[in-house]
Amino acid sequence: MDNNKLGTKPHYQILDGLRGVAAIIVVFFHLTEPLASSHLDNVINHGYLAVDFFFLLSGFVIGYAYDDRWDKLTIGGFFRRRFERLQPLVVLGMTLGAIGFYFTDSTIWPLIHTVPLWKLIVVMLIGYTILPIPLSMDIRGWQEMHPLNSVGWSLFFEYIANILYALGIRKLSNKALAFFVVLAGALLLHFAVTNTNGDVTGGWTLNAEHMRVGITRTLFPFFAGLLLSRVSKPVYIKNAFLWSSLLVAGVLLMPRIGGAQHLWMNGLYEAFCIIIVFPLIVYIGASGVVHHQTENKLCQYLGNLSYPLYMTHYVLVYFYVAWVSNYKGITLYQACSYALLTFSGAILLAYASLKLYDEPVRAWLRKKVK
């Protein structure tokens, strides 16, 4: 049956809003990151955990939206829906990254001087598919699988999780899924506590180490979200958006724990947040009700802006990082005005991308891709 005839379910408005809150913190994390002397003292130290939160949210929403529809929905129909939702902004982010590539020339990226136009175009076209490029095609020098738009790596793993869900994991019983999630959680905990970095960062390079990190970071939160969508029985929680937003902010803004002497402590904190706190936040968000028009509009705005903001902001962050690299030793206070200008530009770019590109393209795809 045509998947467009399936209809849609009501959105969890608060979960939409939480996605936006996390996306905004990601932008600030990327703006403070180049000012830190090491990974131990970033002002927004755990901002990268927003990716793990996004994975859990995605699993919950996918389970809610599709788990009870497979009697009418084909695998091809599921993939068409996901393609329509995710791919337009993947293409836009890579295109904008390519347009700005040569203009971010800086001593921090010496390879830019040597990259011919044809190679830039090839990397961009590969980026359109969200497939990772090999290290031999790195054109920026950061060893990223998507050097035109750094955040593309998480979309690569998002697609992997969607494929695993559609091709088999959706068929698991709740008990079997729970066993899978517990196993994935144990692997995540082990990695977080024993990792020599003392955190769960990684996943953006096409090598064995980063592929392991990416898969480890994806499997537990995505499928824990799926399990949560199946077994949770939300109860009414007053001011759920406020409390869940504060929890998200608290987790992501938490300073580094344990320092360089006790790296395992920070890993334990991150594992605790991903395994316990993030599911709790999603449960709270799913249990809330938006009563006021202002809160409803805020959640809707944040939800609509979240994915465009995440997929386009790093295009501007490249310029910001290049500027910071030209002023070694610059303080957060000195960089504040430029950081706020970059943040404002990221919000405007995301909104323009949403209204002028993403919404029209997705509407066109809904008509053409059936």
Rank of each mutant, 00 (worst) to 15 (best):
A176Q: 07
L268D: 04
V122N: 01
L31G: 01
K175F: 02
L92P: 09
V315L: 09
I25R: 04
N207Y: 07
V251I: 14
W243C: 05
P132L: 14
A260M: 07
R366V: 12
P360F: 08
R366L: 13
Y269S: 09
L120M: 14
W153H: 15
G259N: 10
L252T: 11
Y128V: 15
K9A: 13
V321R: 14
T205H: 12
Q261C: 07
V151D: 11
Y12D: 01
Y48I: 03
S232Q: 11
S229P: 05
D67G: 12
C273L: 04
L57A: 12
D358K: 07
L167T: 15
T95I: 12
R170E: 14
S58F: 01
G17R: 02
Y307E: 02
V43R: 08
L40K: 00
Y102C: 05
K355L: 00
D16H: 03
S173V: 11
H190R: 09
T104Y: 13
S353G: 04
G7K: 02
L189G: 11
D358E: 15
G76I: 13
N3H: 14
W153C: 15
T216P: 06
V289L: 05
H46W: 00
T216Y: 02
A50W: 03
K238V: 10
P10E: 08
P255I: 04
V315Y: 03
Y12T: 02
L6P: 09
L120W: 07
Q143T: 14
A98S: 10
G250Q: 06
V361L: 12
N174W: 04
L164A: 11
F29L: 01
L263T: 09
A161K: 01
L242E: 02
W109C: 11
A166P: 09
A346L: 05
E84G: 13
F60Y: 04
L111V: 02
M254G: 08
A178K: 14
I24C: 01
Y165P: 11
G77R: 03
L365S: 08
K5F: 01
F53W: 05
L302K: 02
L40S: 09
V43E: 02
A184D: 01
F60L: 08
G76R: 13
L252P: 10
G329C: 11
A166Q: 10
M254N: 10
F157M: 14
G7E: 03
